[in-house]
Every structure is written in structure tokens, then in C-alpha cells.
């Protein structure tokens, strides 16, 4: 097991295991950058903590608000970062964000065919499959087949819109609010908003009966 809370990132993490080539390179580069004063061990620890703190829960909170508050949703669609800032979330360092809405007639799904652009501020680190060569190759060419692999079958008359984000924009899908969720609290609604539904490969979860 890796110790994710290692207080001192210099300490060997697996004293009994040999370091792989790449682990050696990371350790060596980090140690040298610290020696040269370009960064500190504390900086690295904080950056890892920041990374751990970002999760799809942030995105889910935004979506749940959009489901219950039509004005917020309009704001989100018009200027996503400004809208999210009104929730007290610090968006200063974020890339430009565009929210796209799923409707009964339009389904959106996001990819980055050239690398792995992803709205990390809202969703955390991307899943392995999002970064995979196969997803990147296929979803632009046969989106419906790919969505079926994720268990999502869409009627032929629904317009599937694939967003290939190539550089400066990040895309967030606003999934459709599931039926039967009238009267649910915003917090309970957020529980239905999965990471995959905000990428667009699935719908939001149905409420448990």
C-alpha cells in the first residue's frame, strides 16, 4: 500500500519494494528541484492535497443547483465560470469552461482526441478510460457504439453531439434531471450526478424507489 498521507515526501514510501525506473526519475527530479530552490517539499505536498481535494462532488453540486434553479442554469450555460463563482467556488485559476445541456432531443459527450483535456477543477483527475487511446479514437467516429458500451442506448432521433476539446476550453455536460426527483433536496439530487454523466457517457442515476 502506498501511504497517501506521507508527511515527508522524501521518505521512501515502500521501503521493501524497489523503485521502478519512473519512480526513480520522479524522486530524483523532485529532489533536484528542491535543492535548486525552485520548489519545496511542502509545495509538492500541498499540490498533491489540492489534487486529492478535487472530485466530481464539486461538479455534482453545480449540476444539482442548475436542476433546481433555472436562473442559475441559464447563467451556467451563458458563462459557466461566472455562474460557478456565485456558489462561492474559487474559479480564478480555471481554464475557460463551457457547460452544455442534455435535453430530450440532444445528448452531449466530451472527449479530447489529442491529449486528455478535462474539467479537472470540477471533476478531479480523469478516469483511465477517458485518457485511453481507444476512447479517444472511437468516440468521435462511432459515438453511439461507444455509448452503448457504457450502457447508454439512445433513440435514433436524438442528436448526439460529440465535443472534441482541443486546447483552451473545458466542457461540462449538464445531464438531464431524472424523472421522479421532484421535491428532492439539492443535496440528494447531487448524489445522482455521477462523474460519467458529466462527461456524457451515461445519464444521471435514477433515484432509488
Amino acid at each position: 500500500m502506498h501511504d497517501h498521507d506521507a508527511p515527508d515526501s522524501h521518505l521512501p514510501l515502500e521501503a521493501d519494494a524497489e523503485l521502478t525506473y519512473y519512480e526513480q526519475r520522479v524522486e530524483a527530479i523532485q529532489a533536484l528541484l528542491i535543492e535548486k530552490g525552485l520548489l519545496s517539499a511542502d509545495d509538492v505536498r500541498r499540490a498533491v492535497e489540492d489534487m486529492d481535494a478535487r472530485s466530481p462532488a464539486v461538479g455534482a453540486r453545480v449540476i444539482a443547483r442548475a436542476w433546481v434553479d433555472p436562473h442559475f442554469k441559464q447563467h451556467l450555460l451563458a458563462d459557466a465560470k461566472a455562474a460557478i463563482a456565485t456558489l462561492g467556488i474559487d474559479v480564478d485559476t480555471w481554464s475557460t469552461l463551457v457547460a452544455v445541456e442534455n435535453t430530450p432531443t440532444i445528448h452531449n459527450v466530451v472527449v479530447c482526441t489529442l491529449c486528455s483535456c478535462y474539467p479537472r477543477s470540477l471533476l478531479g483527475v480523469p478516469p483511465d478510460w477517458y485518457k485511453s487511446l481507444n476512447y479517444r479514437a472511437r468516440v468521435v467516429k462511432e459515438p453511439r457504439t461507444v455509448l452503448e458500451e457504457f450502457g447508454l442506448e439512445l433513440a435514433p432521433d436524438i442528436e448526439v453531439r460529440v465535443y472534441d476539446s482541443t486546447a483552451d476550453m473545458r466542457y461540462l455536460v449538464i445531464p438531464q434531471r431524472p424523472a421522479g426527483t421532484e421535491g428532492m433536496s439539492e443535496g440528494a439530487l447531487a448524489e445522482l450526478v455521477t462523474r460519467d454523466s458529466m462527461i456524457g457517457v451515461t445519464q444521471a442515476q435514477e433515484p432509488s424507489p
Binding site: L13, Y22, D128, S132
Partner: peptide
């Protein structure tokens, strides 16, 4: 598409950091 996911190991997080 292989949908298996793995928790990032510490060296991966540090590379990102």
C-alpha cells in the same frame, strides 16, 4: 474501451504535482 480504473499511486500524483 477498457473501463477498469485505478487509484493514482503516489508517484503518479507527485508527477502531476
Amino acid at each position: 474501451i477498457n473501463k477498469a480504473e485505478h487509484e493514482l499511486s503516489f508517484w503518479e500524483k507527485r508527477t502531476d504535482a
